Computed example of a mutant assay.
Amino acid sequence: MRVGVYSGSFDPITLGHQDVIKRAAKMFDRLIVVVGNNSEKKYWFSLEERTEMVKELLQDIDNIEIDSYSGLLVNYLIERDLSIIVKGVRNQEDCALELYFADGNYIISDKKVDTVFLPALKEYMHTSSTAAREIARYGGKVECYVDERIAQRVLERGKKFAPK
């Protein structure tokens, strides 16, 4: 069975994330979407809230499993005897950073974990969680970046971070 692992912090999950996940799900028998938690980041949404949103938006895709993890993604794969990370890339900067991580993960895993890259479609090349949060801080049209099913939650959270 071919199993891929796609991870992100999803704070919030964007239309670009959803697109890459849907496309990757067609390539694998099972795709595990891991909601990551990095202790260095300050999140708008808790790990539980982010996981809930991801589950809500991806529930119609049969071969997807949702999980959460705090720590190195490569360790998640090693612990579960998995070998393929899926990463979406929007631009040259993303590609350079993800190549760096892919090389590190390959080395750390004793050459057992490899990375597959999916380019973002042109309509999502500028879509990011950071941009969605910034739009939400000012009460903007966040539906351009996040699914309409979570847009109101993102806008409501943005009010907490709006400039005074």
Score class of each variant (00 low, 15 high):
23 R>A: 08
64 I>W: 06
97 L>Q: 10
74 V>L: 01
131 A>I: 10
95 C>S: 14
14 T>F: 10
71 G>Q: 07
104 G>L: 09
153 R>F: 09
60 D>S: 14
30 R>N: 12
145 Y>A: 06
66 I>W: 08
162 A>S: 15
116 V>Q: 07
60 D>H: 14
78 I>M: 13
34 V>S: 04
131 A>D: 02
152 Q>H: 10
99 L>V: 09
116 V>A: 05
107 I>F: 11
148 E>A: 11
160 K>Y: 03
80 R>I: 00
111 K>D: 02
29 D>F: 03
24 A>K: 11
132 A>S: 05
138 Y>L: 15
90 R>D: 02
25 A>E: 00
80 R>K: 14
51 T>S: 15
44 W>V: 01
144 C>F: 15
144 C>P: 00
51 T>W: 10
83 S>K: 14
95 C>H: 11
4 G>D: 00
62 D>F: 04
24 A>F: 09
102 A>S: 13
93 E>W: 00
146 V>R: 02
137 R>K: 15
145 Y>R: 06
161 F>M: 13
9 S>M: 04
74 V>Q: 02
141 K>L: 15
151 A>I: 08
40 E>V: 05
27 M>T: 08
77 L>I: 04
106 Y>E: 07
36 G>W: 10
118 L>K: 11
16 G>E: 01
21 I>D: 01
65 E>Y: 07
153 R>I: 09
164 K>T: 03
105 N>P: 08
128 S>F: 04
34 V>A: 05
50 R>K: 15
63 N>H: 12
99 L>M: 14
84 I>N: 07
56 E>P: 07
1 M>L: 10
36 G>Y: 04
163 P>Q: 14
97 L>G: 06
75 N>I: 00
154 V>L: 03
119 P>H: 09
15 L>G: 13
139 G>S: 12
11 D>A: 12
65 E>I: 03
117 F>E: 02
143 E>M: 03
117 F>C: 07
30 R>L: 06
42 K>V: 07
45 F>A: 00
98 E>K: 09
58 L>K: 02
110 D>F: 01
146 V>H: 04
85 I>P: 02
66 I>N: 10
150 I>M: 08
144 C>T: 15
156 E>A: 11
69 Y>F: 15
83 S>C: 08
155 L>V: 01
141 K>V: 15
47 L>Y: 04
60 D>G: 08
136 A>F: 03
24 A>N: 09
31 L>G: 01
115 T>I: 03
27 M>G: 08
23 R>F: 09
126 H>M: 12
18 Q>L: 15
5 V>S: 03
2 R>A: 11
121 L>P: 05
55 K>Y: 06
3 V>K: 14
6 Y>E: 05
152 Q>T: 11
105 N>L: 05
11 D>K: 14
20 V>K: 06
125 M>D: 04
144 C>G: 14
38 N>F: 10
107 I>Q: 14
118 L>H: 05
123 E>H: 01
12 P>T: 12
152 Q>S: 13
19 D>M: 06
22 K>E: 12
17 H>L: 10
73 L>G: 02
136 A>W: 04
56 E>V: 03
72 L>Q: 03
129 S>T: 01
13 I>Q: 06
3 V>N: 04
15 L>W: 13
34 V>W: 00
42 K>Q: 11
120 A>G: 03
157 R>M: 10
32 I>Y: 09
107 I>E: 12
157 R>H: 07
45 F>S: 04
12 P>Y: 15
99 L>I: 06
120 A>W: 08
108 I>D: 01
71 G>R: 09
39 S>G: 01
127 T>A: 08
